[in-house]
């Protein structure tokens, strides 16, 4: 295999190296790659918002479907711009309050559903040692998250069992995620050595 002749592979490889140079210390190459990534992502984000929100959800329903209900969210959205004018900047709190209120309200039923599913998943459908471990682990972990009781005596001992279960779970999750990250790193090195430099197949 030979070194890549494709211009874009060179760009991708050099930018990869610029980002990895951060491992040594902050430097102009990293700064360039960082500003490029931030700038491009903002530009891309604006175009996505323009097409997926302004055009699809506001312009098209308003102009083609004559759906004037979209004027309400449009007005709420426009109120966000009141922040640019000091004397009416308080108006921007209305859409924020609406979003926070609606979001919190909507999350109530879904949180309950999640809770119910968790309780159901904890109840054993067959009797074995694993099921017992799950029940003990869930109950002791719940005790750890008791805030209105002092963690002393029996409660303290059970909560210590709970935090042990939590740490075991964290250890497993850490190892699992690190494995996934290492595979991403291998993918990048493979790109540099194979697609760019052509050293390996």
């Amino acid at each position: 295999m030979a070194i890549a002749t494709n211009f874009w592979i060179w760009i991708a490889a050099l930018l990869t190296l610029a980002i990895y140079s951060f491992l040594y210390k902050d430097n102009p190459f990293y700064k360039f790659a960082e500003y490029l990534l931030v700038g491009i992502s903002i530009g891309y984000g604006i175009s996505v918002y323009w097409h997926n929100t302004i055009i699809t959800k506001v312009y098209n329903p308003l102009v083609y479907d004559k759906n004037f209900l979209v004027l309400i969210p449009l007005l709420l959205g426009l109120l966000m711009f009141s922040r640019f004018f000091k004397n009416v900047s308080y108006l921007s709190r209305i859409p924020i309050a609406f979003v926070v209120g609606a979001g919190t309200g909507l999350s109530v039923p879904s949180s309950f559903e999640f809770l119910f599913k968790q309780v159901y998943a904890t109840m054993p459908l067959k009797l074995d040692f694993g099921s017992l471990i799950i029940v003990v682990g869930v109950i002791s972990t719940l005790v750890y998250f008791f805030f209105s009781l002092e963690h002393k005596g029996f409660v303290g001992r059970v909560s210590r069992v709970g935090i042990t279960f939590i740490m075991v779970a964290f250890g497993a999750a850490f190892g699992y995620t690190i494995m996934a990250r290492v595979s991403l790193f291998i993918g990048r090195i493979q790109f540099l050595l194979s697609d760019w430099l052509g050293i390996i197949k």
Binding site: I19, F22, K25, D26, Y30, K31, A33, E34, L37, V38, I40, S41, I42, Y44, G45
Partner: peptide, 19 residues
């Protein structure tokens, strides 16, 4: 505001931390 791209945000915040 930095950016609404996950790793763009991470890169921006990291750079800011270092500086």
């Amino acid at each position: 505001y930095i950016t609404q791209d996950q790793f763009g945000y991470a890169a921006g915040v990291d750079g800011m931390m270092m500086r």
